[in-house]
Write a protein that binds this DNA or RNA. Structure first.
Lengths: 247, 247
DNA sequence: TATTATTGTCACAATTTGTTACAATAATAA
DNA sequence: TTATTATTGTAACAAATTGTGACAATAATA
């Protein structure tokens, strides 16, 4: 399995300084206009879309490597990040797409290039405030953009499977880990929060029960009202009160 | 991070045939006489206890490698096995204990021996029927035995941390994945099952509510009564009805 | 000032969970 | 044979949680 981002310095060395055989893939979730989105890279002169990824430096903790990859891709620090599964099937190993990417950049490589060997990849998912994350393509990629999770294009290798597993994990941990709040901006209305939950779970929730449940968590701080200009009662804004976060 | 089991063929080669930098550790749970137990290896001429582990062959799926390690250690096939976390901290890397093990076997090694490099380890937990698993020490270990989880001796490296994370995962998934049944023998009484749940969760449960909940799952098949010789009503035996298992 | 859409909250029902109670019943003792 | 003992299966009720609908409050607009 080959990996992204393919920094030129990685491609032109023999892999020295990085742990061999091991990579990281990150599924970076955002939420905008009622849609769950993830960050994907598109490589120059190929039609290949891939998850942002990278390698682990020999002097770096695994989780720190994931944090570094995330920061390089979103320009954000201190983001919610969770390891969720490690993918190590043999059928991940298909050097074809990576050869295409390397060729497209006019890079020399032999069939024994370290990037063309089999890789096991540790999957992480991240939750970011869509309005604050600034996607940054790496040097081999044309673009780094948000894509609707509900309407994903074909992805490189087993990345579709990785995304699905990330989403499954997200749903399972939605209540247990207060995931929702990491995908919204600093302040939000109860309706915002409910729309997010409904999108993640892909099911309608009852407004009354949802509000009662969220308030009963005791982690929301009520702020001023939000006068949206609509012909209706103005909703309160809320903020996630980290000091009230349960242990 | 060094790994177990250390098959001689692994120690005397240059690591060819295995994925470098990557290892597997398995936390094998059993339940006997009201105690949760795990399998540990004790190495010859050292006082080191370690989790059963191994490496991934280049031609082998990651999960299959875990399955192979488990089979080699317990002589059991088709065991419940779940990947739960991948451990990649730098402070795992401490070649001292492995040097001791290699020395104890009179093996030659240089400081650049592949086993002395840093390893990232994928953690799996397994649930086995204590009465059927036959622990098998590998060729470098003196013994492979069950130890009470509640009273573990010091373990090699970060294996204590791995065990704790496995137990945390076990508790979280106890209801969701019907874990309990994999730790009991083919048939069991409701009291057996409750004792297991109480041990895993480390808390008392109400007998009546527990029975109602288990029966409501619709996955238990009631068999004959068990005449235990005690001066009291005989309990029914139950069996896990796999055909009734929910999707 | 009436209308409209949405919000915050209450009220009640339905369901689930917590707890107690009690009859049934193996084995043993009287 | 019969009483005693410990444990079991289940019913009964209470408490807590969740599901659902209703309604007054209220910004903006007509």
């Amino acid at each position: 399995m080959m990996r992204e981002p393919l920094h030129p310095e990685e491609m032109q060395t023999d892999g020295t300084g990085f742990l061999p055989s091991l990579a990281i893939d990150t599924v970076i979730f955002g939420f905008h206009e009622g849609q769950l989105k993830i960050l994907l890279l598109e490589y120059t002169n190929t039609n290949l879309l891939a998850l942002p990824g990278g390698f682990i430096q020999e002097t770096e903790n695994l989780n720190d490597a994931a944090r570094r990859v995330l920061a390089e891709r979103t320009s954000l620090q201190g983001i919610y990040l969770e390891q969720f599964y490690t993918f190590g099937d043999l059928d991940r190993y298909d050097p074809t797409p990576l050869r295409a990417i390397m060729s497209a950049h006019g890079l020399n490589y032999s069939d024994h290039h370290w990037l063309l060997r089999r890789f096991v990849s540790v999957g992480y998912y991240a939750l970011v405030d869509f309005t604050k994350a600034i996607p940054v393509p790496d040097l081999l990629a044309d673009r780094c953009d948000w894509y609707d999770l509900a309407n994903l294009p074909p992805l490189m290798q087993d990345h579709q499977k990785i995304v699905q597993k990330a989403l499954d994990t997200l749903r399972l941990e939605l209540d247990r880990k207060l995931i929702g709040f990491n995908l919204l901006s600093e302040t939000f209305t109860m309706a915002d929060l409910q729309r997010l939950y409904e999108t993640i779970l892909d099911q309608k929730l009852h407004r009354s029960g949802f509000q009662r449940k969220m308030l009963s968590l005791g982690i929301l701080e009520r702020l001023d009202k939000q006068y949206s200009g609509g012909a209706h009662k103005a909703p309160y804004l809320y903020r996630f009160a980290s000091d009230k976060k349960p242990v």
